[in-house]
């Protein structure tokens, strides 16, 4: 009797608000038209190649070199951002200093500044007569047109990810936990490593994965500073410029599969972060 009553309430509840079919229908239609059907074209185009041709394209020496550079530079850039991003997030949450609000707003600059602008700026800034390049030249460090340049560009574009994922978690940390640890005799360093760090590490990992994923696909900010150090998206672009669509598409499939795996990892990490937050609140 009761279950029938609740069932009736539930079906009624769904009917109260209109527009379910319209909005879901439009969502699926638009998603299919703009995203899913065009993405499916990548796999359709690759099927023109036989398996051995496909394997030959994705393992050619330039391709392997580009994977090494793309993954290596993206990983290092995300690592550097993890360290400095954590410091920036910490400073913004815990301390007060002059101009803090402006600094906080400025952290998002790499999200807002178009990649082509970032690209030409970094390329000229780090060239041998640019503001930073001419300081590094006497030290024997060349950035523009080298792999180091790729790393610099990827560090720039990945900068906000770690700050913006760690910051809210740091803000929500319960100060009582630190006070409890202190009253039990822990020093500041112990409190950081044993109490604070374990609680922010899921967010830190999520930020790292987001920065890494973004760096892998990056194109605009890298091409101007990279020179002959070719990342995989540049290699795809070269093939397209020569109308080698099947070859370019084969490389694109590799990139797409890697991105999808990363997207899945990030979703799991985010779920883990949220779980951590709710348990710490409870």
């Amino acid at each position: 009797m009761i279950s029938v009553a609740t069932k009736q309430i539930r079906t009624k509840r769904i009917r109260v608000l209109p527009g379910f079919r319209l909005t879901l229908g439009f969502t699926l239609f638009y998603l299919g038209l703009i995203v899913l059907i065009p993405l499916a074209a990548v796999f359709w185009k690759t099927s023109e190649l036989t398996w051995s041709e496909f394997w030959h394209v994705i393992t050619m020496p330039q391709a392997l070199a580009s994977y090494r550079l793309t993954f290596g530079a993206s990983f290092l850039a995300a690592l550097v951002n993890a360290v400095f991003g954590l410091i920036v997030a910490w400073v913004l949450v815990r301390y007060n200093f002059f101009g803090k609000k402006i600094v906080d707003a400025l952290v998002d600059l790499p999200f807002a500044l178009p990649t082509a602008v970032a690209g030409i700026t970094l390329a000229i800034l780090y060239s041998h007569n640019g503001w930073i390049g001419q300081l590094l030249e006497p030290l024997g460090i060349k950035v523009a047109n080298t792999r180091l340049g790729v790393f610099v560009a990827l560090t720039f574009i990945g900068l906000p990810f770690i700050v913006r994922t760690v910051q809210p978690v740091l803000e929500d940390l319960d100060p009582e936990l630190e006070e409890a640890a202190a009253s039990l005799g822990a020093n500041r360093w112990q409190i950081f490593w044993r109490v604070i760090f374990p609680m922010i590490s899921p967010a830190l990992l999520t930020g790292f994965a987001l920065a890494f994923a973004r760096a892998l696909g990056e194109y605009g900010s890298v091409i101007f500073i990279a020179g002959n150090a070719k990342i995989t998206p540049m290699l795809i672009m070269d093939e397209l410029d020569q109308f080698n669509y099947a070859k370019g598409t084969a490389l694109a499939v590799v990139m797409l599969v890697v991105s999808f795996v990363l997207l899945l990892t990030i979703n799991v990490l985010q779920w883990w972060t949220n779980r951590y937050n709710t348990t710490s609140l409870a």
Partner: peptide, 16 residues
Amino acid sequence: LPFSVSPVISGLIYVL
């Protein structure tokens, strides 16, 4: 999904 697709590939799919 479009956030995790490289910009070059985002253009490529429409060419295809």
